[in-house]
Design a protein around this nucleic acid. Structure first.
Length: 271
DNA sequence: AAAGAAGCCAACCGCCAAAAC
DNA sequence: AGTTTTGGCGGTTGGCTTCTT
């Protein structure tokens, strides 16, 4: 007997999340906290699988998520951590405050692995590829959608996509404007999603198509979460944390050729 | 300007380990 | 102690966007 599905898939909404669904999920989690994902959708009034709710929250709606381009420092750290940890994205993400495992995995697959290859480094082993016998990694041609199997508009109605966009420093840099950001962005105070007694500040930033742009300005100041300030804090903390790990690693590289030390460093990251 | 290819990334899937019963 | 449930993870898919021809 196989394992029962996490939820009945019948009649459940799939695909991109709508702003309304986001709001329902955020409000529910604010009121009741994370967890109990199986029962959450029903209680929150969502026609979604619990897993889907968890994923949406973890990868997108959590107030501590940092949106924006991966910095060169972060790139470097990802590469170094990957050489130590392999494809353990959640562990790597745990060392990059505000970044999600999904984001790092995507970034690795779309940017970093290809860059390493172009530099003559095997992205799996992080060893130099022999110049006379390079490993030819063929990125399989992406399967294009078979247009004949594409669902019709009737089968799959177009859903508004609350897709975040990468932003530059010129975009949405302020949280002092409660009326709106530049270029028609709308900043929705976090307090509209949650109760005031949560003591959080910041905004969900939607553009004029209601696309969520950035929620990195949230400052989670919930009194329950002081222990997690290093994770939930402002960007300065993130950079400190990044530098700390990076310096620690560099120290080991400089002062110790002994691989055991490096191994134990890697193991310390697993804790 | 249009069509096709390639890139990007949110969301889904299936598996596994730990927790709960 | 064995079974079921749940949460979490990594791999993969596929829809949308951007680039190239």
């Amino acid at each position: 007997m196989g394992r029962a599905p996490c939820c009945s898939k019948v009649g459940l909404h799939r695909g991109p999340w709508t702003p309304r669904e986001d709001t329902l999920l955020v409000k529910y989690i604010q009121a009741h906290g994370e967890g109990h994902w199986r029962s959450l959708p029903k209680k929150a009034g969502l026609l979604r699988c619990g897993k889907s709710c968890r994923l949406r929250w973890m990868n997108y709606l959590r107030p501590d998520i940092k949106r924006g381009n991966i910095t060169p420092d972060e790139e470097d750290l990802i590469i170094r951590l990957h050489s130590l940890l392999g494809n353990r994205w959640s562990l790597i993400a745990g060392r990059l405050p505000g970044r999600t495992d999904n984001e790092i995995k995507n970034y690795w697959n779309t940017h970093l692995s290809k860059r390493l290859l172009s530099q003559g480094t095997d992205p799996n082993t992080h060893k130099k590829l022999p110049p006379d016998n390079p490993v030819v990694v063929l990125f399989p041609k992406k399967k294009r959608k078979n247009k004949s199997t594409k669902p019709t508009e009737q089968e799959k109605p177009k859903i508004h996509l609350p897709k975040p966009i990468r932003f530059t420093s010129s975009v949405c840099t302020t949280k002092s404007s409660s009326q709106g950001g530049e270029n028609g962005q709308v900043l929705v105070p976090w307090s509209e999603y949650i109760n005031d007694d949560e003591n959080r500040t910041g905004f969900l930033c939607y553009n004029d198509d209601h696309d969520l742009i950035n929620n990195s300005d949230f400052e989670c100041q919930s009194h329950h979460d002081h222990d997690h300030d290093h994770v939930l804090g402002a960007e300065g903390d993130s950079n400190d944390s990044l530098e700390k790990i990076y310096e620690e690693y560099l120290q080991l590289l400089k002062t110790n050729e002994d691989e055991v030390q490096l191994d134990s460093f890697a193991e310390s990251l697993l804790i």
